[in-house]
Structure formats: C-alpha cells, structure tokens
C-alpha cells in the first residue's frame, strides 16, 4: 500500500459522494437551506420579541441564535454522516468496495472529507445569512476560521458516532430511531436555543455534560462578544472536543472492525 494508491482510492470514493450529491439537486438545496430557513429565520423571528435580551446577553435573539444554529448544523450533518454507509452496507455496495484491494480506512476517510466539506460550506452560508439579517461577527474573519475549526472538530466525533451506529444496527429503521433519540435532546438540552441561566436547575446540570453546550458557548462569544470573552471558552471547547473525539473515534473504529473484519 503506497501513499499514491491511498490517495487514488480516497479521491475515487470522495468523488462518488460528490457525484451523488450533484444528482440529488433537490436534496442538496434542502440540506443547505433547511437549517437557516427553519432555525435561524423562523425561530429567530418567532422569538425576537419573546426573548429577554438581558438574559440572552446579546443584542437580539437572532445573533444569540446564530451560534446555536451553526452548531446544530454540525450536529445534524455529523449524525447523518453515516447514513450513506448504512445503505451501502444494506445493499451490498460496501461489500463490493471491501472486495477490492483498498485500505479499509479509505471509505471512512472519504466520508469524512465529504461531510466536513459540506458542513464547512453550510457554516459559511449560515453566517452570511445571519449577516444579511444584521448579525455582525465581533471577531471578524479570524473568528470565522475558529468557528470552522471548532465545527470540524465536533463533526469528527459526531460522524464517528453515526458511522459506529451505521455499522452496528440491524436495520436502518433502528438507525433512524436512535438518531432521532439522540439529536433532539442534544439540541434542547444545550444552550442552543436558550442560555443555561434561563433553564431550570436540573436542565442546567444535564446541559453542562452535553458537549453541544461547550461548543456553542465557544462559538457564541466569537459572534456576539469578541476575543476577550471568547478565548477561554474556545480553549475549553478544544480540550473537551479532544476528549470527545478520542472516545468517539475509538468506539467508531471498534464498530467498524467488528463489521468489516
């Protein structure tokens, strides 16, 4: 196995994901537009007046929500990242690929490259839409780079969870019900929509052990407060994500090995 071969495999596999996406134009549009339309614009407008600016500590609800929507997008993309491999497993395409002399990890890596690229683009789109609605990033362009980095790091662990599920479940029915079971509580039991200080006590406790909260609390100040408030939060998020990713990747690798042999 040479590096040249590895690169060729990963490129060929990644091209497949890109081609598939380009064939599903409607689905692509929906994937890109859904988070900002539904969460940012609808939710943002809906709670514009109901939300208490004092509690939010943000100029308005939309700017408070922007960070949450960015991280929610990472969450949804990451958790859905294994779906295509699940279908490949079910219809035998995975076996077809596994019967070729490829390094087993290239399938995984190609999926990562694709999911990360899509997620990165979505983050940029969300921040641009937010900009149109008057949300100005306090930390400017470097802030965007940091937001992307945090998003990618979080996405690595989430995609690993998704792939581990995809390789372990018996049917795709199981997969989607577990996904639903995971994703909604992770959103509502985090600081995505409401700051921790506005939650009932027990909910705060749960939200504190949810990695989502830590990630959002690092992204949000980058948008609404500025570097001074952001840096300690960002540092904290990096530490937590390093642990989170390590655990998820370990579990994912185990599930993959069990499924592929």
């Amino acid at each position: 196995m040479t590096f040249k071969h590895y690169k060729q495999e990963v490129l060929a596999l990644t091209m497949r994901w890109v081609r598939r996406l380009s064939r599903e134009k409607f689905s692509m549009l929906f994937t890109l537009v859904q988070p900002m339309l539904f969460w940012l614009i609808f939710f943002g407008s809906l709670f514009q007046h109901a939300a208490n600016i004092q509690i939010l500590q943000a100029p308005n609800y939309m700017s408070f929500l922007a960070g949450g929507v960015v991280v929610m997008t990472v969450l949804n993309n990451g958790l859905a990242g294994g779906v295509d491999l699940l279908f490949d497993k079910e219809n035998g395409f995975l076996e077809r690929m596994m019967s070729t002399p490829i390094h087993r990890s290239s399938v995984i890596l190609s999926r990562y490259l694709f999911v990360m690229a899509i997620t990165g683009m979505q983050i940029l789109v969300i921040l641009s839409i937010a900009f149109v609605f008057g949300v100005r990033l306090e930390t400017g362009l470097p802030g965007i780079a940091v937001i992307l980095a945090i998003g990618m790091l979080f996405g690595v662990g989430l995609t690993a969870i998704s792939m581990a599920l995809a390789f372990s479940v018996k049917s795709h029915g199981d997969f989607f019900s577990m996904l639903g079971f995971l994703s909604l509580p992770m959103i509502f039991l985090s600081s995505a929509l409401v700051p921790l200080s506005a939650m009932p006590g027990w909910m705060q406790v749960v939200a504190m052990v949810n990695p989502m909260t830590w990630v959002i609390d690092a992204v949000r100040p980058l948008i609404i407060t500025g570097w001074n408030a952001a840096i300690p939060q960002v540092a904290m998020a990096f530490v937590i994500l390093a642990v989170f990713d390590a655990v998820c990747l370990y579990g994912g690798a185990k599930a993959f090995r069990r499924a592929i042999g």
Partner: peptide, 21 residues
C-alpha cells in the same frame, strides 16, 4: 441491488478503477 442508483454505468467503473489503482 448493489448498484449506486445515482451513478452512471461509466462512473461505477471509474470508481472501481480507482479502487483497483
């Protein structure tokens, strides 16, 4: 059933050519 519905015939072969180096 192990075909990718969204790829053309040629793309299937191109993908595999990549996997066989």
């Amino acid at each position: 059933r192990a075909v990718d519905r969204f790829l053309t015939g040629r793309e299937h072969l191109e993908l595999l050519a990549g996997l066989y180096h």
